[in-house]
Computed example of a mutant assay.
Amino acid sequence: MRIALTGSSGKLGRVVERELRSNGYDVIGMDLAGPRGPGFVQVDLTDYGQVIDAFSGVGDRHDGIDAVVHLGAIPAPGIRSDVATFHNNMPATFNVFWAAVRLGIRRIVYASSETVLGLPFDVPPPYIPVDEEYPARPESVYSLVKTLEEQLATELVRWHPDLSITALRFSNVMDPEDYATFASFDEDALLRKWNLWGYIDGRDGAQAVQRALEVAAPGFDRFIIAAADTVMSRPNADLIAEVFPGVPVTREVGPNETLLSIERARRILGFEPRHSWRDGA
């Protein structure tokens, strides 16, 4: 399967590119910047002409693609102004989705975000662990775009019943070298309350992408993608009692089990995190 991977130069994109290639996929990286060579095409995703042309074929690089993994975006709120974030991310995703539809590409996997769950949870979540069952609660322009992208995907698959679009609501992406800082989080429960003390190892993020490419059914679906544990050594019972004392806990959770439920991704995609900061690498 030949994959167009947008955002291939980003933190998650670099890992996804490496892991997909190691598992036999033909990956064409697409981003504003990247290494010159046969596996990369420079593309401005906000320019529809560039997107559909790059998906169609580029010189001797490739002559068409089978699926799209769309990670290209301003990756978080607060990096650029709200207007700049909207004007980049929303058109980029529309262009990627629309070009794929026009070219008959019927499998899209893309980065949604944990932010649609209500981050930074200044308004407490409706219950813990959070899951995909309650409506999106965007609290930033970045998250608003992610919510609109999910609605866009919902309508496109209604128009095209053979189209598969999978939204992966990634938690905070981490590389192994990031884990050295995790011990300091225990000093203040509020430091990481903004995403219920969650994270995702980039290698497990890549695993989720591959699982979605392989097993996602036609239609639209969305999945929380997080590590199996929290960033904290402190037990969940203490954290919840201190920070979210009035929030219902809907089931028993382990002392350090993720509070960003990944049960749906496990059940439908076969996703199972393999990496933890507790392992040291």
Rank of each mutant, 00 (worst) to 15 (best):
I3F: 03
I3M: 06
A4E: 02
T6P: 06
S8W: 00
S9G: 13
G10Y: 01
V15A: 14
V16E: 03
V16A: 06
R18N: 12
R18D: 13
E19F: 10
G24C: 11
Y25E: 05
D26W: 12
I28V: 15
F40R: 02
V41L: 11
Q42H: 08
V43P: 01
D44V: 05
D44Y: 03
V51M: 05
I65H: 01
V68E: 00
G72C: 04
G72W: 00
I74W: 03
G78P: 09
G78W: 08
I79N: 04
S81L: 06
D82N: 15
H87L: 15
T93G: 03
F94W: 15
N95M: 07
V101A: 11
G104F: 11
I108D: 01
V109Y: 00
S112Q: 03
S112M: 06
P124Y: 05
P124R: 05
Y127K: 12
Y127P: 00
V130K: 02
E133G: 12
E139Q: 15
L148K: 01
E149D: 15
Q151D: 14
T154Q: 14
T154R: 14
V157C: 05
L163H: 03
S164Y: 01
R169A: 05
F170D: 01
F170I: 03
V173R: 00
M174R: 12
P176Q: 07
D178Y: 09
T181N: 13
L191D: 13
L191H: 09
K193S: 15
K193P: 02
L196W: 05
G202K: 02
G202T: 14
D204Y: 08
D204S: 11
G205A: 13
A206I: 06
Q207N: 12
A208M: 09
P218L: 09
T230H: 08
N236W: 04
N236L: 06
L239P: 03
I240Y: 09
A241Q: 14
F244G: 02
P245T: 12
R251C: 11
V253E: 09
G254R: 08
E263Q: 15
R266H: 13
G270W: 07
R274I: 02
R274C: 08
D279L: 13
A281H: 15
